[in-house]
Design a protein around this nucleic acid. Structure first.
Lengths: 326, 326
DNA sequence: CTGAAAGCGCTTACAG
DNA sequence: CTGAAAGCGCTTACAG
């Protein structure tokens, strides 16, 4: 045990634990001489005192942790960047971001009870009872799915729809039939469904035929199979679930000797680093992450400060990054 | 507050809190009738009781959390997979993995004091005082840099050297001059240094000339500049810091109209999903993540069980994945 | 301006 | 076989 407690600091600086606590937690209401404050702080530093957060959490029922719950699926560089930015924004206010990779049998309930976080940010929808329990425990619960803190999971997500819509809109300028490259990882289905729905709706609006959906695994052979199928149905442009899938489609196109974008255009989602380096450079839908991160941080901090007004939602921040593939 | 405490469970099932604790923490020494155990457990479930880990941590000085400290740099899909696997392995034993993205001003000391984890796994070296303090607090501290729990940061890492060695060895079969594609993100320098050193040593051993080092940013133009320089010095193969950089080199090659591997071979590190989809498919050094994850999990669990013998290190698990680019 | 005391919810010797 | 009690380290009314 490091074993330095507030009692040690108190004894060493000749004051009571009360005073130590007041000085160190920075309570303004109490009048403590500047001299005493200085001495206490100096002693704390000298002894290497760090308050036991377990005790503090037990006492106050709250910690300085923000818990991010990642879903079961591979998150990729976009979410990773978002987490980094978020940690950056919040650390300035003494909050630490902790990330839980959603896999593993342990229940969410166990986890948040263990961590007693100040806020929980979900990257996939929570079960109703978890949501309720956390709210009851005074934990701020946020979602990252866009418009609402915790949208109805049965309803399609507005941002996901819009992603699909942007893809189809961009491809639709060529007026041909659109293909959809569906991810083979079943954990992505919930998002793929909404994105595809967005594509569908845009096709209808634009007077284009129904999109041709094909599963595309992340290897050349699987992609080549899909490409052959699309070719047979005169598809002129493919919207891919994300950039990884789009890269596979590009590889499939090459394997089948089809040019891109002339033979078949391709558009992805995410703008991962590899996108601009692909052959041809991948056109994609990007989700300005910094804005989203700042918004999330602002939500957490607003609650922390007991602010009246919530920060204004910055919008989806979605836009097409036009390169060579579409 | 959810507010269900062990006292509630005790009252509701007509026993003392002691008994509740014994039953729920599964102490074998004490004789409690099967009937009582059953009733306590059933009541706990019915009330939705989850023990306050803050209290438990305060009392025992220990939690069921394993804290992973990521470094300041972008970790990428390999580490992400490692974390997922690790969480999987450990969750079976009631341990939760929490990841801290190393950015942010908050000190590591604050963090581990807050979380009181059972073990801390560092993905970059710890400062000496942090290491000492954690060990003193009875926290198991592990590194992921390979051979040693916490190797001397001044010494080159054995695995990093070996990565470079494998790259050079593979490229060296063509007997030409080797180029090294150095990452522009300065946070990666500590690893890049050791990998390059591995390349250097292998070149010397193989009787090849000194490698030609060039920084390569993650865009076509930056890569093209490097490619022109290499071409001027008759480089026949390039070892890239990782797959992302290798993808950039590939793009630079295309931009300069050089064929690959004929004009110039390229080898990366990591085997990210995009590697097999590149044009040409990227040859790379892979680090068999599952093995590494299982080993880490085994280390944590061995300590948990107070096992005498440490699990056997599985070796670096490094190997060249040969595709078309080298 | 400062201190004595209660209590957060648990675990665990200890006493029946 | 089970319970009363102490104590982990903190914060915070409350009393001087």
């Amino acid at each position: 045990m490091a074993g330095i407690t507030s009692a040690d600091v108190a004894r060493e600086s000749g004051v009571s634990r009360t005073t130590v606590s007041y000085v160190l937690t920075g309570r303004d209401g109490v009048n403590i001489s500047e001299e005493t404050r200085r001495r206490v702080r100096e002693t704390a530093v000298r002894l290497g005192y760090a308050p036991s957060a377990a005790a503090r959490a037990l006492r106050t029922g709250r910690s300085d942790l923000v818990l991010c719950i990642l879903p079961d699926w591979p998150v990729g560089p976009v979410i990773e960047t978002l987490l980094d930015e978020l940690a950056d924004e919040l650390s300035g206010r003494g909050l630490s971001v902790l990330v839980h990779h959603g896999r593993g049998a342990r229940s969410l309930t166990d986890l948040w009870r263990t961590v007693t976080p100040r806020a929980v940010i979900g990257f996939a929808p929570f079960a109703d009872h978890d949501l309720l329990a956390m709210r009851q425990a005074g934990i701020q619960v946020l979602g990252t799915l866009g418009e609402d803190d915790q949208p109805d999971p049965a309803l399609p997500s507005e941002s996901q729809l819009r992603i699909g819509g942007l893809q189809a809109g961009h491809l639709g300028r060529r007026r041909g039939r659109i293909g959809y490259a569906w991810p083979t990882d079943s954990r992505l289905e919930v998002f793929a469904r909404d994105r595809l729905l967005g594509v569908r709706r845009a096709c209808t609006e634009l007077g284009l035929p129904e999109p041709v959906v094909r599963p595309v695994g992340l290897d050349v052979d699987a992609a080549a199979v899909a490409v052959r199928a699309w070719r047979g149905q005169e598809v002129t442009g493919v919207a891919a679930y994300n950039d990884d899938v789009a890269l596979a489609v590009l590889a499939g196109l090459r394997a089948e000797g089809l040019s891109c974008p002339e033979g078949c255009a391709v558009i992805g989602v995410d703008d991962v680093p590899a996108a601009r380096l692909a052959a041809p450079a991948l056109t994609t839908v990007s989700q300005s992450i910094e804005v989203q991160a700042r918004y999330l941080a602002a939500l957490v901090l607003a609650d922390l400060d007991g602010a009246e007004d919530k920060p204004v939602h910055p919008g989806h921040g979605l836009h097409v990054v036009e390169r060579d593939s579409a």
